[in-house]
Nucleic acid binder design. Sequence first.
DNA 1: TCTGTATGTATACATCGTAAATGTACGCTC
DNA 2: GAGCGTACATTTACGATGTATACATACAGA
Lengths: 247, 247
Amino acid sequence: MAKEEAPARDKDTAGSPARRASDRGRYGRLNRERVLASALELVDREGLSALSMRRLGAELGVEAMALYRYASSKDALLDGLVEALYLELEERLGAEPEALAGDPSDWRAELRRIARATYDVCLAHPQAVPLLATRMLAVPLAQRPNAVLRNHERLLALLRAAGFDETRASGIFRAFTAWLLGYVSVELQPMVDNPDEPDPAFRLGLHRLSPQELPTLRETAPSLAERGGPEGLADGLDALLDRFTRP
Amino acid sequence: MAKEEAPARDKDTAGSPARRASDRGRYGRLNRERVLASALELVDREGLSALSMRRLGAELGVEAMALYRYASSKDALLDGLVEALYLELEERLGAEPEALAGDPSDWRAELRRIARATYDVCLAHPQAVPLLATRMLAVPLAQRPNAVLRNHERLLALLRAAGFDETRASGIFRAFTAWLLGYVSVELQPMVDNPDEPDPAFRLGLHRLSPQELPTLRETAPSLAERGGPEGLADGLDALLDRFTRP
DNA sequence: TCTGTATGTATACATCGTAAATGTACGCTC
DNA sequence: GAGCGTACATTTACGATGTATACATACAGA
């Protein structure tokens, strides 16, 4: 039914179609990278709930079923989004793992750097953050996307190189992950009721909160809605590292 | 308010149907509490993805549409589950807020107690934990379920009573929430590939991990799969409180 | 006994994920 | 070039889901 705008305008114009590489008569337009990039962009733009196979297909000028060549199910597609986030993280961190190249005594700085880069990626894709706390953690370790596993490897290698034994390294790893994911989850959600409202109290919808039963929450809410920013992340991380690396 | 189950056992016992309280000719079988309890039980038993309106209806011996009297949409139902979790938390914490009754100097112990109780609730309903990191945080502050708001109020009142100003209290509140949610999210997910496998390495699916590219992860995985338990939670919390309450 | 309201059912529709069969255009060999 | 195999995309179809709407029923109070 040719919902296309570009293609095969005239099947036999003779003089005809002058194909560009990206336009070879509906053939080979897709690849996994494009699919995931488009999915992430859609999620960024309209939220996770807007992501359906049909919708993503339309976004790419393709039927929904075509996507199954590049992600074997919708769950796999979501895992792919997680992968995309971690690929973006790797890019920001630089290709080669610093852990192996750098000075082992800088492991704290390196952890901070990784945490900060993760924060930045999440800040760029706030709507996708829930995927980390749910999809990613729900998938058994060994089945997580490769980019995720590489990230795990990087962290663990860093810690082992710094001299921590397995048990120690695991503890630090878990604390790092918990704090990082918790922090971005709490920080990067709206909390705002009506974003277009100029008055902060109304923007937060505070008029819904009973002053009798929730007095403290009501008066603290505006301050609560502020962000700790990357500094808050780094502060907490330092505190946790102090504790979890104690003898 | 008469959402009771006690009443009107046998309108006219005559010979006939011997109605039990739970069986009055399909009328008045439901109430919000029962719906939410049943939903939570279903999630506990078969996971979040098993929760559909039809399925939950069947569980209660009722058509799907009947549920809409008690939750105006599926999203509202999920929010109801969050509420149910927080009600359970309140039960464990005791009815009256300790913050107002207790000694303000015990605020750290009280925070630990709340964290521990939350951990216990999550441990009892691991399949529902993702709801906290997603649904709960995604809902604008003022629209969160009442039990959640009461929990926020309790925490903030506790901190204000301990002498922290709004800004300070907010910072501690956010750190507390982030750590707590991150910790239970990381801790209470399976990580296991094939639960029935006796050998730990196979149970984790480690054979899928390339020894060349992921050596450290491979050797650390068994230790990673262990839990930090409530002690780990308390340790990290203490560390964060030290940091976020510094002058 | 009658009537209004609270409660649950019946029916219907749009949308979703996805299995299976079908077409279509390219790269290859001849 | 002609023809073929295969990678790619479409078509069609099915069952499940959330939910709007209209209806039926059972109880409570007059």
